[in-house]
Amino acid sequence: MELLGNLTLILLATTIVGHFSTRIGIPAVIGQLLVGIVLGPAMLGWLHLTHNLEGFAEIGVIVLMFIAGLESDLQLLKRYLKPSVFVAILGVIVPVLGTFWVAELYHLPLTESLFLGVIFAATSVSISVEVLKEMNALNSREGTTILGAAVVDDVLAVIILSVLVSTTGTAVGGHTSGNLLVTTLMQVVYFAAIYFVVKWLAPYMAKMGKRLMIPMGETLMAIILCFGMAYVAELVGLSDVVGAFFAGIAISQTSVKSTVDRHIEPVGYAVFIPVFFVSIGLNMDFNGLGKQLGFILVLTVVAVVSKLVGAGGGAKLAGFSWLSSTAVGAGMVSRGEMALIIAQIGYQAKLMSPVRYSAIVAAIILATLVAPFLLRLTMNQVTKGQKDRSKVRPLND
């Protein structure tokens, strides 16, 4: 009964707020995040992140990233692989150094300083995907680079986290330094297996779906592949969103792409995806944060600027214009669920003191709230610049 009441409240609030957010030109996802903050422990206390809501939220981000993969152009992803790697590497190095400096400034222990860098090295591209979809820019050069870089970024962050937890932390979920090499090898095998999935498994499952004598057979087979790849990704120490994204790419190469896309979007956006965005806001709690306000503000500013400079610098090195580079950097600013998950893992592994945990979560959410505004602003400038250039060209002919 509690779950039904919570879902009713979330869907009612996100529908109303999303409508008015879009009407005044604010990304709908911002309204959904604010619903979580207002209705959650931070303000009214009407909603709390229960185990059931966490399950809905996890399905929401998996479906969102599956849709992102489904609507991505594989040829464009291949074409922009080089800039994606540049963006990801610099987008990890600069935030690690920047947030490590903040930790040293506030005299945090060395282990906690290192872990803080790992938290803010991560990127959650789910919010950027939503903004890019709203702007019809998901398959633009900037959008494709952001998607590719986010995957590489996620892998790098997971590897660094694995090393840090294995060498300095308390074992979490049975992972110790003894199986670090095995975990790394399993991740390599996982990425190698993606080629097999795209080439053979996904087309075979698509054909099976067409032959099934049940409604929406193709979509059911696609969801099975999505959840299966997300589950295996978690088993080998990666984020489930990585598996979901590549499952979407695999299905996008089959003849059932448009059918699956048409069926799965209404389900995702009607229920699961709004719950995911609200859940990020529900992690916010203002209790006891007054004394750490300076730390939160400095950490938030460094988190935003370091990702903007690092990822944007990587795009510039890869040959992008300053405007496009800034847009790519803005698309990588959001930390969202990836940073929250890493923070929780580190907290359980005793890599972070309870005193700083709430402040770090607050900084993650603040950086996540800023990200959609930055991305929309910079992408609008990119679009405006492209239109201006197209008007100038005929005059030069």
Rank of each mutant, 00 (worst) to 15 (best):
V87T: 06
L74V: 10
I59Q: 05
V87H: 05
V61P: 03
L81C: 13
V63I: 09
V85D: 08
K78M: 09
A68N: 03
V85Q: 07
Q75D: 11
K82N: 15
K78A: 06
G60D: 03
E71G: 01
D73G: 09
F66H: 05
S84L: 09
L76Q: 15
F86C: 15
R79T: 13
F86N: 14
L70C: 12
V85I: 12
V85M: 09
I67Y: 05
E71D: 04
L81N: 13
L70G: 06
V87E: 08
V87C: 14
R79M: 14
V87K: 04
F86H: 09
M65D: 01
I59W: 02
L81F: 14
G60Q: 02
V63N: 03
L81Q: 15
K78E: 05
E58G: 11
S72A: 10
A68G: 06
G69T: 03
S72G: 08
E58C: 08
V61R: 02
E58Y: 04
S72P: 09
E58I: 08
L81R: 15
D73L: 11
G60C: 03
V61D: 02
L76D: 15
Q75T: 09
S72E: 09
M65E: 01
V61N: 04
K78R: 15
P83C: 12
F86Q: 15
I67T: 04
F86D: 12
I67C: 09
V87L: 11
V63D: 03
E58Q: 08
S84R: 13
S72R: 08
G69D: 03
L74G: 07
P83A: 13
A68C: 04
D73R: 14
A68H: 02
K78S: 08
K78W: 03
G60A: 02
S84D: 15
L74K: 01
A57V: 02
Q75A: 07
I62F: 00
I59E: 00
K78V: 05
E71A: 01
A57F: 04
R79D: 12
